[in-house]
Design a protein around this nucleic acid. Structure first.
Lengths: 229, 229
DNA sequence: CCTTCTTAGTGTGTATTATACACTATTTCA
DNA sequence: TGAAATAGTGTATAATACACACTAAGAAGG
């Protein structure tokens, strides 16, 4: 027990809310919590912050360790410092949320086996202590932010069709959008660029692929351009 | 040295960016930093988080201790967990920002004396380590948020004229607004209610006073109303 | 090869909202 | 009593958002 301080210090953790799109729904990644005592509930992936890494590094490390996910969009959400019930250690948790492009990876959305699983955001399982409120806040942030920041692209592969993009927005905002108005708006953004490539192996007219040009977007944003869907 | 842990723990602090409106400018409250060694630079008010208080409580306590301010709008901004240069203790800082209604309190905006002072946001003094980036982020948040949330009212007394309100927006957004369009928009919000009271002791036609009815606002917001200026 | 199925892709008119703009009213003070 | 200062008011035009329905292309199956 070598680490000693003059005043008590709360333990510091990161927790990550990883969102992805699968089966027409937003899914969230959960892991089985260690503590067998509490009926083995689900929890957000997370863990202690080491003293030699930044908070963002800790979040990425924990996400990789818990789920194998890497190279994802990651943004700080909020820091939860509520007091624990008597007798528990004081824990302060810095929550992050991640947007994951599953890009066709096979996703098992029901926790039949294994200790990580994706759950539809509409029907999360019972979760460890405050994780349900972290999850709610993260989803609220996603819904709010997706309209004013180009983060919807993060849930899609690099190449995507406008149909896929519209679908992302329809699922997150939970309402149908008009196809013509949506295309008009998106195609007016010059950082959504058409590729010389179309869909393959579809049983209907193949759609054009597009990609999100982050550089162009950032140049425009610097000039005062306001993204909006 | 009674507090001992199995793994090293970063120290946890809160720092508060307190904004107010004075002399036609946004001002930020700073305090003299303890450490005499570094030429006694300025710092955001803040301090250690105690183990028996929430983060918000710590922020309010530190703000009151450092500046005497109480009952202010306070919202979490971001948690800064960057690594310190070698040899320094690892410190994680949860930053908050506050909006203060000075309501005619006399404000000394130049640090001739005393160890707290308000500085115009445009010309902050030299500050301790990362506090300048916390300040920038807070100001950016304020500018972004003021357009979509009714937080401009927090910088004004309970009773205010539409001129004062417009002035708040003009200062924060750094551009002139059209008086008629501004009034039209604000008066269409039923949570800005006229009082039976007008300005006194002014050398011109006296303006009507209004107040922000938070209850009414929240009822509307729940129904989907989107504040916007 | 022709029909059917499925999704891609396209334009216009209307309603709503944002913007630009200038004068009269009221009060104090000299 | 008039000069100075700010309060308070309405309308026309431009820009944006929204509603809406058909043709095009490719695949599959008879």
């Amino acid at each position: 027990m070598p680490y000693t301080y003059e005043f008590p210090r709360p333990a510091l953790t990161v927790d990550i809310v990883a969102f992805a799109l699968a089966r027409e729904q937003i899914q969230v990644m959960l892991v089985r919590h260690d503590s067998e005592s509490l009926g083995n509930p689900w929890a957000l992936p997370g863990g202690w912050v080491r003293v030699d890494e930044t908070l963002g590094e800790a979040a990425r490390r924990e996400l990789r360790a818990g789920t194998g996910l890497t190279d994802v969009f990651l943004e700080q959400l909020y820091t939860f410092g509520g007091l624990e019930p008597d007798g528990c250690e004081r824990v302060v948790s810095v929550a992050y949320y991640a947007l994951v492009n599953l890009a066709g990876r096979i996703v098992q959305t029901r926790p039949e086996t294994g200790d990580t699983a994706w759950f539809p955001i509409q029907e999360p399982p019972e979760m460890v202590l405050y994780h349900d409120s972290i999850l709610s806040m993260a989803y609220e942030r996603l819904r709010g932010k997706v309209r004013y920041q180009p983060i919807g692209f993060e849930l899609l592969p690099d190449k995507f069709s406008l149909r896929q993009l519209q679908h992302v927005y329809e699922v997150i905002l939970d309402r149908k959008l008009d196809k013509r108005n949506f295309r008009k708006k998106v195609l007016s953004m010059e950082f959504v660029v058409a590729l010389n490539e179309i869909e393959k192996d579809v049983a209907h007219r193949a759609a054009q692929f597009y990609r999100f040009d982050r550089r162009k977007y950032e140049r425009l944003a610097k000039k005062g351009f306001q993204f909006e869907i």
